[in-house]
Design a protein around this nucleic acid. Structure first.
Length: 877
RNA sequence: AGGCUCGUAGCUCAGGGGGAGAGCACUACCUUGACACGGUAGGGGUCAGCGGUUCAAAUCCGCUCGAGCCUACCA
């Protein structure tokens, strides 16, 4: 066990084992009076990087800890939300590194196909350029240029945040190695029959002019209309009434459908209807899957080219498909007189036409859910086209089992349920995109229409040997490459050293918003391609929200982490992230909280200044080993040890907030407010006990050095800066041993005694405040030993000088209280408070309130004690 | 339509079957040799509501109300 505060093997020298006994010269042990993070943050980052601290250390084969960064999109700058997750990762990386793990954290970026292409298109639009004017090659060149800038920006942002990523291993999803991994994966799935090409109705964005996956469609409730339209049916005078929310698609109807068992619509059986406007004959089909007997008129128009359900029904019944809306959202020539109109304009005109023909029976308000493009908010059009799909079930099943068995664990656990829910109802994944930026699909068609799918560009058709090959123009969904990230970054499918040593990884930290997009797919791909889950733990954090409008773009513009860093320092931003990282689904970032973290940094800075001033040129902690320690020393060391074990326990559970709070509370309220104030007289040598003074110096040194180590993962820059002054070692805190707490230092008796002391001091100060007694005026205190617990007062007797000092007592006696004073019970001992000068007025209000409160408590307790069942069942204490 | 999460001090949020907490904000006092980005003391809560389980409920269960999120092919 390490972390023993005085055994000389703690955080302070675990890095090298060397023992530096003499502190450097006075000048360099001083800290600047005012604390300015900008003075040292970038310097320390360079030092660490130059000394290779971000690369895996220790012999290969020793316990390792590996993470891959969720690669940021190269769409632009990181925002305050990205920096959150990266900070949590860095806390884990630094913590594990200090615990002695061989840590590797791999950086990189994602080409983010559709997102990046859209950004560039917008940039071009500003110059009045359409990508089609440029052509594919020129356009892609532009995106590459953009990507280089964006990558540099992102990298510098992450560096300023302090992230200890191994930049020698940086990757990009379109790098040659990663691209060949994508092709390898595609070809393998194709050969296994898990990738297929087919003509289906897919989600289509008419603005982006590409297919998108189900996940890229955002559903919104809208208030629309349900149009009731009468179709003529020869032989049925009333005709058939059909309801639709999208009248424009009726031009593509190729049938009407009824439920075989619905008596209401039995009269249509075997008949044919006449499609209004177009006058096409529509067979009436019977389909129990498509038609819900309970809903509407019981008659459904079948539009195979513009509705996925209708398409499936058309397949079952051999119906033709008529495409009336094109890829650009405009009506096709098939729409006749409406050809060329925008789909929504066509709807209006068709409704007018139906009205004129007296076929529109009514328009009912109808609230329903409509799909929108995640990227551009355009209404998604179900569109019949030929696309590539991943047959997902066979991949999903092992991935479900991996989570069931605990091979992959979600933190917080509640996401497990969400994961199962989605995975058990998963649909095939449309992976082709009609874009230019991305991994081009490795499928080639020859002049005879044969398909060749191949990892290397083929020179001839597999089937007929033709040399006239054309590659599929489409690219793959971005997530197809991202799903390979945890292993493609290590060179997979090649059997590289890195792949062998660092895969599978340990922890993945990301927002819950990409649980399906990315996490689930990585688990599927990892198991399928490598035979192993890609990580054992997934920490899903909440999404960052800025509080109110205080930090909105319009005001402070702290949306860019660099702006927050400039104002508060990277350490303060990081600490704020950590303490805001609760287990909820939103993380609210408040400006006040940033200021609070900055204040905490300043507090540490000043505590360090004080400590350094006391230590200057004096012997160091190690030499104090074996020294007799007083109660305050034993107390703070016990608290330090417990804090260390707390922090480790909380970090192991990804409770960054609790861990941060534990260090905060210890450092501020126990070390600074408590111990520092207690030992000031000792350090000043006023009591003349040189031995106690040396002990205090040693304890202070240990408390500070261990606090720096504990805090380093959260506030790396500031702690490294102080560390240098304190220990004389430059840039080594990052690889010093992390305190874990040592039960040998747990000292419940010292804790009890000092906490009682502090409670009494507070009571005296409170007395002073109540009576408006100036702080300078002394007070008399009596402490009466409780016969039931004589030890309590006894321990206080040993602390009498300290009590006198802290409470500013004129007189402290152990015995019965003086007459005319105020009496109270604090922490189990009776105390009497009085002014030496005479009899002050008791504060009536306060006393009355106290009496009332006590009365209530007595009432409650006696009621309880009179309850026989309570006495019977409650534990004796 | 189903599912999930949340409702605790003015604000942001921890906690979670037997003492109601933190940070910020607020009040009073304090320019005491680390720190006013500070110190000391203090005020403030029917833990959304109703019912149930229990000796004991803020905590477990059910319902209601309110907020948010996710999933879904009802024309």
């Amino acid at each position: 066990m390490h972390g023993n505060p005085l055994d000389g093997r703690s955080a302070s020298d675990a890095d090298t084992g060397e023992s530096v006994e003499i502190l450097p010269k006075k000048s360099s042990t001083r800290l600047e009076k005012t604390f300015d993070p900008a003075h040292f943050e970038e310097r320390w980052y360079s030092t660490w990087e130059a000394e290779g601290r971000f690369q895996p250390a220790g012999p290969p084969g020793s316990p390792r800890f590996v993470m891959v960064i969720p690669p940021p999109n190269v769409t632009g700058r990181l925002h305050i939300g990205h920096a959150f997750g990266r900070t949590l990762e860095d806390i884990l990386a630094r913590w594990k590194r200090m615990l002695g793990y061989r840590v590797l954290w791999v950086p990189g970026t994602d080409h983010a196909g559709i997102a990046t292409q859209m950004v560039i298109e917008k940039e071009l639009a500003k110059q009045g350029i359409d990508r089609r004017q440029l052509g594919r090659q020129k356009f892609v060149e532009r995106v590459w240029a953009w990507k280089r800038d964006a990558k540099d920006t992102i990298q510098s942002q992450i560096r300023r945040l302090g992230c200890s990523l191994d930049w020698t291993r940086e990757r990009f999803t379109l790098d040659p190695d990663l691209s060949s991994a994508v092709r390898h994966a595609f070809v393998r799935l194709y050969r296994e029959g898990l990738i297929y090409r087919g003509r289906y109705v897919v989600n289509w964005c008419p603005r982006c002019e590409t297919a998108v996956s189900d996940l890229e469609v955002v559903h919104k409730e809208v208030d629309g209309s349900l149009y009731r339209i009468r179709y003529d049916v020869p032989g049925v005078p009333s005709g058939a009434v059909v309801a639709t929310t999208r009248p424009e698609t009726m031009l593509g109807d190729t049938a009407l459908a009824i439920h075989p068992d619905d008596p209401r619509t039995a009269k249509f059986r075997g008949k044919a209807a006449i499609l209004p406007i177009v006058a096409r004959e529509l067979p009436v089909i019977e389909d129990p899957i498509l038609v819900d007997r309970e809903f509407g008129t019981g008659i459904v128009k079948v539009t195979p080219a513009h509705d996925a359900n209708d398409f499936a029904a058309a397949q079952r019944h051999g119906l033709p498909e008529v495409v009336v809306i094109g890829p650009d959202g405009k009506m096709t020539p098939e729409a006749g007189e409406f050809s060329g109109l925008d789909r929504f304009e066509a709807r209006k005109q068709i409704v007018q036409r139906l009205e004129r023909e007296n076929r529109l029976l009514g328009i009912d308000p109808h609230r329903f859910s409509l799909g929108y493009c995640q990227r551009c908010d355009t209404v998604i059009e179900p569109f019949l086209s030929t696309q590539w799909f991943v047959k997902i079930r066979p991949l999903a099943e092992p991935a479900i089992r991996a989570v069931e068995s605990g091979e992959v664990r979600f933190v917080p656990e509640l996401w497990t349920k969400t994961y199962f829910e989605w995975m058990r109802n998963i649909h095939d994944w449309c992976i082709s995109r009609q874009l230019w930026w991305g991994h081009r699909i490795p499928a080639f068609t020859c002049a005879n229409g044969h398909l060749t799918v191949s990892e290397e560009d083929p020179s001839a058709c597999e089937t007929c040997g033709s040399n006239a090959l054309e590659q599929d123009p489409d690219v793959l969904d971005t997530w197809f490459s991202s799903q390979l990230w945890p292993f493609s970054v290590f060179g997979w499918p090649k059997d590289t050293d890195d792949y062998r040593e660092f895969y599978p990884t340990d922890v993945l930290v990301t927002g819950y918003d990409i649980l399906f997009f990315w996490v689930a797919r990585m688990i599927m791909a990892g198991i399928h391609f490598t035979g192993s889950v890609p990580f054992s733990t997934v920490n899903l954090h909440g999404l960052v929200r800025l509080a109110g409008e205080k930090m909105s773009k319009t005001r402070g513009n702290v949306v860019d982490p660099l702006v927050a860093i400039a104002e508060f320092g990277a350490d303060a931003l990081r600490f704020t992230y950590a303490s805001s990282a609760t287990s909820g689904t939103t993380v609210t970032l408040e400006r006040e909280r940033l200021a609070g973290s900055r204040n905490f940094a300043t507090k540490l800075w000043n505590a360090a200044r004080f400590t350094l001033s006391q230590l200057e040129g004096k012997p160091r902690a190690e030499e104090l080993h074996g020294r007799a320690l007083g109660l305050p020393d034993r107390w703070i060391l016990s608290r330090l040890s417990r804090t260390a074990s707390d922090v480790n326990r909380q970090l192991a559970e990804f409770r960054f907030d609790e861990a941060a709070q534990a260090v905060y509370g210890f450092l501020w309220h126990e070390l600074c407010d408590g111990y520092l104030e207690m030992v000031k007289p000792v350090l000043a040598g006023r009591d003349g006990d040189e031995s106690a003074r040396e002990s205090a110096r040693g304890v202070l040194y240990r408390c500070l050095s261990d606090s720096l180590a504990l805090l380093h993962p959260f506030m790396p820059f500031l702690t490294e800066e102080i560390w240098e002054k304190l220990t004389g070692r430059s840039g080594t805190l990052i690889v010093s041993r992390y305190p874990t707490g040592d039960p040998a230092w747990d000292d419940p008796r010292a804790e009890e005694a000092i906490e009682r002391l502090r409670a009494i001091v507070t009571r005296v100060r409170n007395f002073r405040g109540e009576r408006r007694v100036p702080p300078t005026e002394p007070i008399d205190l009596t402490i009466e030993s409780d016969p039931a617990d004589p030890g309590a007062a006894e321990a206080l007797r040993a602390l009498a000088p300290l009590l006198r000092h802290l409470a500013r007592l004129s007189d402290l006696t152990f015995g019965p209280p003086k007459p005319r004073g105020e009496r109270d019970v604090v922490s189990g001992v009776s105390v009497g408070l009085s002014l030496p000068g005479g009899a002050p007025q008791a504060n009536r209000t306060r006393l009355e309130r106290a009496i009332a409160q006590l009365g209530r408590e007595i009432g409650e307790i006696s009621t309880k004690l009179q309850n026989p069942t309570f006495l019977d069942k409650a534990p004796p204490e």
